[in-house]
């Protein structure tokens, strides 16, 4: 497997004018194509900073980030993103909210302007897959929180990006909805094979979804542990109660605990 993303001693210092705050220590990291990586850690550990760096939304103060063969310089294009806040456009229907990815994507915008047809089909079948066929023409406020998050996820992957960044996308949902969406997420990832980076507070979520979990320390952020998750796929909710699964969760818990006690 090839590395899709490569970070070479990437660090981040925020300059507030009065003082300099280091958010991220120089970090080396590579993420293989098609890999599902989860990032966990206490709040303020630079998880979100790491994500903004990876997508080029914030420029790193040191080091180099490469996606594919290009060195990142400005926002990475053609990356899908989903946040905790679904941030759908309230004046657009579910379908139109998903289609926006084609409308602005540098790879698809021309074809989309010529003929929406095939793109509407793609978006519709994706929505059908996550069980939202009936809600295609509804507006966001007519959907439940879980449905909005499904739309959000659809928008981030519909245009087949190479990289999908998920920043606690299920964080605000209730436990049942969240677990249901893990299964949806896993299925989409297996079918489509994109590279995914998931940022989360939920250790079970991290273990359930990812191939590898990295643990970050409190500010300044730094990677203190990497844990490959070798559980077979597809994973089920049943599996989360097995010893092997629990072992992973305990291990991660312990790493975060010791880091907190030390600081």
């Amino acid at each position: 497997m090839n590395a899709l993303i490569e970070l070479k001693s990437v660090g981040m210092v925020f300059d507030t004018g009065k003082e300099q705050i280091r958010a991220l220590e120089a970090t080396d990291l590579s993420i293989d194509e098609g890999h599902f990586l989860a990032v966990v850690g206490p709040s303020g550990c630079g998880k979100s900073t790491l994500m903004r760096l990876l997508t080029g939304l914030t420029r790193a103060s040191e080091g180099e980030i490469r996606i594919g063969d290009v060195t990142l310089d400005g926002p990475a294009r053609d990356v899908g993103m989903a946040f905790q806040n679904a941030s759908l456009m309230p004046w657009r229907t579910t379908l139109d909210n998903v289609l926006v990815s084609f409308e602005v994507s540098p790879h698809h915008r021309r074809a989309f302007a010529r003929d929406r047809g095939p793109f509407v089909d793609q978006a519709s079948s994706l929505l059908a897959e996550v069980g939202l066929s009936k809600f295609k023409d509804r507006f966001p406020w007519e959907l439940s929180g879980g449905m909005q998050q499904r739309v959000n996820v659809c928008r981030s992957i519909v245009h087949a990006p190479r990289l999908v960044m998920l920043d606690e996308p299920f964080g605000a949902l209730d436990a049942f909805t969240r677990e249901a969406l893990w299964a949806v997420m896993q299925r989409l990832w297996i079918e489509r094979g994109f590279t995914a980076v998931l940022i989360t507070h939920d250790l079970r979520e991290a273990v359930y979804l990812s191939d590898e979990v990295i643990v970050m320390s409190a500010r300044p952020g730094r990677i203190i542990h990497r844990q490959p998750i070798d559980l077979p796929r597809p994973r089920s909710l049943e599996m989360t109660y097995t010893d092997a699964f629990q072992g992973h969760v305990h291990m991660l818990r312990e790493k975060i605990q010791t880091d907190q006690e030390m600081s």
């Binding site: 939304l57 993103m81 941030s87 456009m89 409308e103 602005v104 994507s105 990006p161 960044m165």
Partner: peptide
């Protein structure tokens, strides 16, 4: 919201795209 512009920028949207697709409808 910053999340909204972040999502669109990482999809490859230009400043003009964001103004036309989010800014103006939102300010209606």
């Amino acid at each position: 919201e910053r999340d909204m512009t972040d999502v669109l920028r990482s999809l490859g949207a230009s400043r003009r795209d964001i103004l036309l697709k989010v800014g103006l409808p939102r300010s209606m």
